[in-house]
Amino acid sequence: MSRNELVAKIEALNEWESVIEEAKAEADALRDAIKAEMLERETEELTAGQYIVRWTSVISNRFDTTAFKKVMPDVYKAYTKAVSSRRFSISA
Rank of each mutant, 00 (worst) to 15 (best):
E40P: 01
M38N: 08
I52A: 11
N14R: 11
S91G: 04
K24L: 07
E26G: 04
M1K: 03
A78P: 06
E42P: 00
R62Y: 02
K77L: 03
D28A: 14
A36P: 02
D32V: 04
E17N: 15
E22D: 14
E21F: 00
G49P: 00
V19F: 02
A67N: 11
S60W: 06
D32M: 05
A25S: 13
R62E: 07
L13P: 01
A78Q: 15
V58C: 10
A25H: 03
I20E: 11
F88R: 06
Q50L: 10
E22Q: 14
L46P: 06
N61Q: 05
K35T: 05
W55N: 13
E17T: 11
K70M: 08
Y51H: 14
L30G: 04
E40T: 05
E26Q: 14
F68P: 01
A25L: 12
F88D: 05
T43A: 10
T80Q: 07
E5H: 09
R54Q: 15
P73I: 07
V53G: 05
R54D: 03
E42D: 12
E22G: 06
E21S: 04
S60L: 07
T47E: 15
Y51T: 10
K70C: 05
M1L: 10
A29T: 06
V7L: 14
W55S: 07
A29K: 09
R41D: 02
S89Q: 09
A8Y: 07
N4D: 15
K9P: 00
I90T: 11
K77G: 06
A12P: 03
S91A: 13
R41I: 05
E42L: 01
I20F: 03
T66M: 04
E15K: 13
D74L: 10
S2F: 01
R3F: 08
E5Y: 01
E22N: 11
L13T: 12
W55I: 07
L30R: 11
A92E: 12
I20T: 02
L6E: 04
S18E: 12
F88S: 03
F63Q: 09
T65C: 07
E5V: 10
E21A: 13
K70G: 08
T43W: 05
A92S: 13
S89M: 08
V58P: 02
R41F: 12
L6P: 02
Y51C: 12
S18A: 13
E15L: 15
A82K: 13
E45W: 06
E17G: 10
A67M: 08
T66L: 08
Q50K: 14
I10V: 14
A8Q: 13
V58H: 09
A36R: 09
D28K: 15
E26I: 08
V71D: 14
S18M: 08
R54S: 12
A12Q: 11
A27I: 04
V7W: 03
D74F: 08
T43S: 09
E44L: 00
S85L: 09
Y76C: 05
R41P: 01
E5Q: 10
V53W: 10
I20Q: 13
I52L: 12
I10N: 03
Y79M: 06
K24A: 07
T56A: 11
E11N: 12
S85W: 13
V53Q: 03
